[in-house]
Simulated scan of single mutants.
Amino acid sequence: MASSIEAWFMDDIHDNPQLPHHRNPQELVSPHYLAELGVLHWKLNPDRYEDDEELDKIRADRCYNYMDLLDLCPEKVENYEQKLKNFYTEHIHADEEIRYCLEGSGYFDIRDKDDRWIRVWIKAGDLIILPAGIYHRFTLDTFNYIKLMRLFVGEPVWTAFNRLQEEHPARQSYKMNFGGTPVKAH
Score class of each variant (00 low, 15 high):
80 Y>L: 03
120 V>R: 04
150 R>E: 02
148 L>P: 04
27 E>T: 12
79 N>Q: 08
59 R>L: 06
172 Q>H: 10
104 G>C: 05
140 L>H: 02
54 E>F: 10
54 E>W: 11
96 E>F: 09
106 G>Y: 03
149 M>N: 10
40 L>V: 11
66 Y>K: 05
28 L>W: 14
156 P>H: 07
21 H>I: 06
117 W>H: 09
154 G>V: 02
83 K>S: 10
31 P>L: 01
110 I>Q: 01
27 E>K: 12
8 W>T: 05
75 E>C: 05
88 Y>T: 07
124 A>E: 01
171 R>Q: 01
99 R>E: 04
105 S>D: 06
129 I>S: 09
82 Q>C: 13
176 M>T: 15
20 P>H: 06
98 I>F: 03
20 P>W: 05
161 F>K: 07
52 D>T: 02
81 E>F: 10
36 E>G: 08
72 L>E: 07
63 C>W: 14
154 G>C: 00
182 P>N: 09
103 E>R: 07
3 S>V: 15
87 F>Y: 04
19 L>C: 12
98 I>V: 09
34 L>R: 00
14 H>V: 13
63 C>T: 15
7 A>K: 00
121 W>N: 13
15 D>K: 10
14 H>Q: 15
65 N>T: 05
56 D>E: 12
23 R>S: 12
185 A>R: 14
74 P>W: 03
67 M>G: 11
53 E>L: 10
139 T>N: 10
123 K>H: 13
51 D>I: 09
144 N>I: 11
80 Y>A: 01
85 K>W: 14
19 L>H: 13
20 P>A: 08
128 I>S: 03
42 W>F: 06
152 F>G: 05
49 Y>M: 10
173 S>A: 15
71 D>S: 10
96 E>V: 08
144 N>S: 12
143 F>G: 15
87 F>Q: 02
99 R>D: 03
82 Q>E: 13
103 E>N: 09
87 F>W: 05
97 E>C: 01
155 E>Q: 14
172 Q>S: 11
125 G>W: 00
25 P>Y: 03
164 L>F: 12
158 W>D: 04
9 F>H: 08
93 H>A: 03
13 I>A: 11
7 A>Q: 00
90 E>W: 09
30 S>R: 04
12 D>C: 11
184 K>Y: 15
95 D>F: 10
135 Y>C: 06
95 D>I: 12
45 N>E: 11
170 A>S: 06
99 R>V: 01
152 F>S: 05
93 H>W: 00
84 L>F: 08
82 Q>H: 12
100 Y>A: 02
184 K>T: 15
110 I>L: 06
141 D>V: 07
148 L>G: 05
52 D>F: 03
47 D>G: 13
55 L>M: 01
184 K>C: 14
52 D>G: 03
118 I>E: 02
162 N>P: 14
4 S>H: 14
14 H>T: 15
8 W>D: 04
146 I>D: 03
145 Y>G: 06
135 Y>R: 06
83 K>V: 11
124 A>T: 02
45 N>K: 10
160 A>W: 11
153 V>R: 12
116 R>C: 09
110 I>M: 05
40 L>W: 09
76 K>V: 08
125 G>S: 03
159 T>G: 06
46 P>E: 04
143 F>Q: 15
33 Y>G: 03
35 A>I: 05
116 R>G: 08
167 E>R: 13
132 A>I: 00
47 D>S: 13
169 P>T: 02
123 K>Q: 13
25 P>V: 01
166 E>N: 06
108 F>M: 02
19 L>R: 13
57 K>N: 11
